[in-house]
Simulated assay, not measured.
Amino acid sequence: MDGDTIVIQKTQIRLFGVDAPELDHPHGKRAKWAMVNLCKGQQVSAEILETDAHGRTVAKCYLPDGRDLSAEMVKQGLALDWPKFSGGIYRDLETPDARKKLWLADARQKGRMRVWESYAARRRSQDSE
């Protein structure tokens, strides 16, 4: 679906401990296609952990060779560790420029939603021109 959400047997699964850009944010489509490329033709397994505040299933997801999808997305610089949920287990995997490149996700993690709102307002005004 996007850089931090997949579907397994009709169940939408939010990857544990990471945050990727939304599809309409910078690098959002790149994150989605990186996820598609990782999973395509693979049998992905999920270790379900919880249901989040939005009703989504949260799971640690693994490729057949044992690679953690959350870790793989962070290593590619297309997702950020979200310490509030991960305890910081993916932080050391972040690329040096990841927080700068994925600035909207970084802002969300820090509770700076006015940055999101400002971005959305700019997008709406550009779309209406």
Rank of each mutant, 00 (worst) to 15 (best):
Q9W: 05
D24Q: 14
H25P: 00
D68G: 14
R123G: 00
M35G: 04
I6A: 14
S125L: 13
D68S: 13
L80C: 10
Q43H: 13
H25R: 15
G55T: 04
D4T: 07
M113E: 00
R67G: 12
M113R: 00
E117V: 03
R99A: 09
Q126F: 09
L102K: 03
T95S: 10
D19G: 07
S86R: 06
V115C: 01
Q109K: 05
R122C: 02
L69R: 09
K32V: 02
Q9G: 02
I8S: 09
L102C: 14
V115L: 03
L80N: 11
K29C: 00
R56T: 07
R30Y: 07
R91C: 07
L49V: 11
Q42S: 11
A120P: 03
R108H: 12
L69M: 13
D65F: 14
L23K: 12
T11K: 10
T5G: 09
G3Y: 02
I89S: 03
L78N: 06
D52C: 02
D4C: 04
I48F: 06
L78Y: 11
D92P: 01
Y62W: 14
K101L: 15
P26R: 02
W103T: 01
L80S: 13
D2Y: 05
S128R: 14
H25M: 12
H27R: 11
G77M: 09
H27S: 15
S128L: 08
P26A: 00
D92I: 02
V7F: 01
P96T: 04
A105C: 12
A53R: 13
A71M: 08
G28W: 08
D127Y: 02
L93Y: 06
Q12Y: 11
K75F: 14
R122T: 05
G17Q: 01
R112V: 01
E72C: 14
D52R: 06
D2E: 09
G111F: 02
Q43N: 09
R124I: 09
L102V: 08
L63P: 13
L78D: 05
E129S: 15
Q109R: 12
V44E: 09
R108M: 12
L23G: 07
L102S: 03
Y62R: 10
Y62H: 15
M35L: 07
I6D: 11
Q42E: 13
E129R: 15
G87V: 00
D81W: 08
P64R: 01
Q76W: 08
R99G: 05
I89H: 05
L80F: 12
E22H: 08
A121V: 05
L102G: 06
K84F: 09
K60T: 04
V58W: 12
I8T: 06
R91I: 05
D19C: 11
N37M: 02
T95A: 11
V18Y: 03
D127S: 13
T95H: 04
D24A: 10
V44D: 08
K101G: 00
A31K: 13
K110W: 01
E47Q: 12
G87C: 00
K32F: 05
D2R: 14
D52L: 01
D19M: 08
Q12V: 07
V58L: 06
V58T: 01
T5N: 09
G41P: 01
K101F: 04
D106Y: 11
K40S: 05
K75W: 13
P83H: 08
T57M: 08
M73T: 13
I89V: 15
R122W: 10
G17E: 03
S45N: 03
W33F: 15
M113L: 04
A107W: 02
